[in-house]
Design a protein around this nucleic acid. Structure first.
Lengths: 149, 149
DNA sequence: TTAAATTCCTACTAAATAAGTCAGAATTAG
DNA sequence: CTAATTCTGACTTATTTAGTAGGAATTTAA
């Protein structure tokens, strides 16, 4: 019952961009340094996020990445789906492949996995980058340090 | 964001035992046949469930497995934890290893993973085998076929 | 007492996934 | 022109997943 580092790091990187939203393109190197992630690995992840239309890139010197939409318009669920695939605790509740569970109508445990899926989506689709930015600002005012993992 | 076949098959097998609760020891072979799972693979899983005290075994001819407690006393969350390890979408919210996230107090995204974890546990710890048995009986009365995946 | 049914145990394996690393081409600001 | 970047694709290494294989130990029942 885990997400991989792809989704985990992806959210970290997107939050980093959100925290610098409006400051022009942010080079990936600086994101990687702040978040303590491998730059090369992040490159792979951000390429996926770019192709999915979640970030925009500016090439060349002084280039970097920016969010493609406002932070309040980007749900964490989107980021996770782009990097991890559909949120489905077991294959048979993956609605992108409805044929995978032929006995869906009669299956008892499937209902359970549907509930789990719905409860995860409830959280991830009702949290946006802006929500996290606000929390980070609250934490900064209160504590001083600010990390995001 | 998946559980593996271990947890998936484990719940199927436990539900099968719950549906035959009170009928004496159920041989694993019959469980494997009804659920269409590899018997050898199930053996591995049930060994873990036995060591965790969720099922009891009776060796020899006419032997098999029974639930170690009443169906209403066995939460699905327990089965999953035994077979999959702690329910934690990322390592840093795994309370069995609290040291793994040293910056927990300041971490913004960690709160999010805590929420996800809580919402999954909410479902899995409030569903027992008896709940699934009841659903299966309802489905049988309504439809005729009864499968559980 | 023997055969059949069953759990129990250890080891092995093939494929997929995860988590990167590496090398270098293309682009652009200054 | 040069340094800072993104972009691309191939490669690698370790771990996990999902089993398989073979047989020993135990028990019932004929």
């Amino acid at each position: 019952m885990k997400i991989s580092t792809r989704g985990h790091y992806g959210v970290m990187a997107m939050l980093d961009l959100a925290l610098h939203h409006g400051e022009g393109p942010i080079p990936l190197k600086s994101v990687a340094e702040r978040q303590n992630l491998s730059e090369h690995y992040l490159e792979q992840l951000i390429a996926v996020l770019r192709k999915a239309g979640l970030v925009k890139s500016v090439r060349g010197a002084q280039g970097g990445y920016t969010l493609a939409r406002e932070p309040h318009e980007i749900k964490i669920g989107e980021i996770i789906r782009v990097l991890e695939g559909p949120i489905a605790p077991v294959e048979c509740v993956n609605e992108e492949d409805p044929e995978c569970c032929l006995r869906a109508d009669y299956c008892v445990t499937r209902n359970l996995w549907e509930k789990v899926k719905a409860s995860i989506e409830e959280v991830l689709d009702n949290t946006t980058l802006e929500d996290l930015v606000r929390e980070a600002e609250k934490a900064r005012q209160a504590g001083g340090y600010m990390y995001y993992i």
